Simulated assay, not measured.
Amino acid sequence: MTTGDRDYRLSSIDMLRGLVIVIMAIDHVRDFFMVAAEVDPMANPDIGAALFFTRWITHYCAPVFVFLAGTSAGLMTARRTPSAMGAFLLTRGVWLILIECSVIALAWSFAPHGVAQAGGAIVVPLGVIWVIGVSMVVLAGAQRFGQRACFVIGVAMILGHNLLDPIWPVTSGVFDVGRPLWVALHAQMAIAAGPVLIGVVYPLVPWPGVMLLGYGTALVFQESPERRDGRLIAWGTVATAAFVALRLAGIYGDPNPWRVQATALGTIIDFLNVTKYPPSLLFLLMTLGPAAVLCAVAGRAVDAVRQPLVVFGRVPFAFYVAHLYLAHALAVAFGVSLGFSARQFLTFSFFFPQGYGVGLPGVYAVWLLVIVALYPFCRWVAAVKARRRDWWLSYL
């Protein structure tokens, strides 16, 4: 069942997780290095194909990462009692939330205490790590109902949350202040608490449903490889086909309808531009469907591709934290080399000075540098986790 040292792991899961976090790094390097005029490629239907798909391919990262976090938890049920599992998920979830508000915030801003001064407020972003943490807290309680019940709850949440679209308040984005707290469950907004401005980048719903779905799907990964891969391919194909059919029909599943544009490329871009914040049903079908198929065939990859991705996939948290610090540090160094002050880069990337940045080829060059530089570190962390059983290593 496993080729790693931990018998609840499958190399296909590690490889898929490694692939998505490596892809994720492209988008974060783009945040730190892209010229300011190209901050949001998804907002422009006339954007070039290369830039659009550079952003679009990273859409696979968050849903696959959250789903596989649930799957990994599900594969651990044979090793832990429900009480022990609940305690582990609860403490790990709270730990991730605290890390998001401190260590991760500091990586994004390089400002003291993990926050950045912006417009007189101290900004703390709540991104993907926070939503994974909260989802783990939810799973800590839900796992007592069993994996099949979690699967059903997850499916219901993913299928049904877009029913909120016509009635839920529409916000103007992550800096929208003054809304009731409950609005942050399903929309981006900011929460002002004294001098602190908490930006909810990732609304909570339906992310716990994605983790519950992954937790329930762990039962499939306990079957024989042939049966497991057959189911993954079938489910992935159905999900992908459902995305295409529902998107064409435009009847349900995403609040952002597509339209025929002046060019074929523009039409394709608009068709694929589904809602990520929060992830719509179509967004999740578009990403989790192909990911399921890829997971089924991951084991067929040649070792030169598979092994490095497995290494990254076994230490995703260490990679995530390290790549943000490295990318931001490289941005500071590059900015200084262009004649800017280092202080101008001790903030979030969207506040970087005008005139700074590189084009898309430069982004990919820095991305490759980050991946190559972090591989020895990740291999070392993976080796430590493989040969030691210290309790705290499970939180890394």
Results as ranks from 00 to 15, higher is better:
Gly4Trp: 02
Asp5Ala: 14
Leu10Ala: 11
Ser11Arg: 14
Ile13Val: 15
Gly18Arg: 10
Ile26Cys: 08
Ile26Ser: 12
Asp27Ser: 13
Asp31Gly: 03
Phe32Ala: 12
Leu68His: 08
Gly70Phe: 03
Gly74Ala: 05
Gly74Trp: 07
Arg79Gln: 14
Arg80Tyr: 15
Ser83Lys: 14
Ala84His: 13
Trp95Gly: 07
Ser102Asp: 05
Ile104Val: 15
Leu106Asn: 08
Ser109Asn: 11
Ser109Tyr: 07
Val115Pro: 00
Ala116Ser: 13
Gln117Trp: 04
Ala121Asn: 11
Val124Ala: 13
Leu139Met: 08
Leu139Cys: 05
Leu139His: 03
Leu139Ile: 02
Ala140Gln: 09
Gly141Gln: 04
Phe151Met: 13
Ala156Asp: 02
Met157Ser: 11
Leu159His: 01
Leu163Cys: 10
Asp165Asn: 13
Ile167Gly: 00
Gly173Glu: 10
Asp176Arg: 11
Val177Phe: 07
Ala193Glu: 09
Pro195Arg: 14
Leu204His: 03
Trp207Val: 02
Pro208Glu: 05
Val210Gly: 01
Thr217Leu: 12
Gln222Gly: 15
Gln222Arg: 15
Arg231Pro: 02
Ile233Val: 15
Ala234Pro: 03
Val244Ile: 15
Leu246Lys: 07
Pro255Cys: 03
Pro257Asp: 04
Trp258Asn: 07
Gln261Leu: 04
Thr267Ile: 05
Ile268Asp: 00
Asp270Trp: 01
Asn273Gln: 11
Asn273Leu: 01
Thr275Lys: 05
Pro290Arg: 09
Ala292Ile: 00
Cys295Val: 10
Ala318Ile: 05
Leu324Gly: 07
Tyr325Ala: 08
Ala329Lys: 01
Val332Ile: 15
Phe334Cys: 05
Gly335Ala: 04
Val336Asp: 01
Ser337Asp: 14
Ser341Met: 00
Gln344Glu: 14
Thr347Asp: 10
Phe348Cys: 00
Phe350Trp: 15
Val366Ser: 02
Val366Phe: 02
Leu368Cys: 12
Ala373Asp: 01
Phe377Asp: 07
Phe377His: 06
Ala382Tyr: 05
Ala383Glu: 13
Tyr395Gly: 01
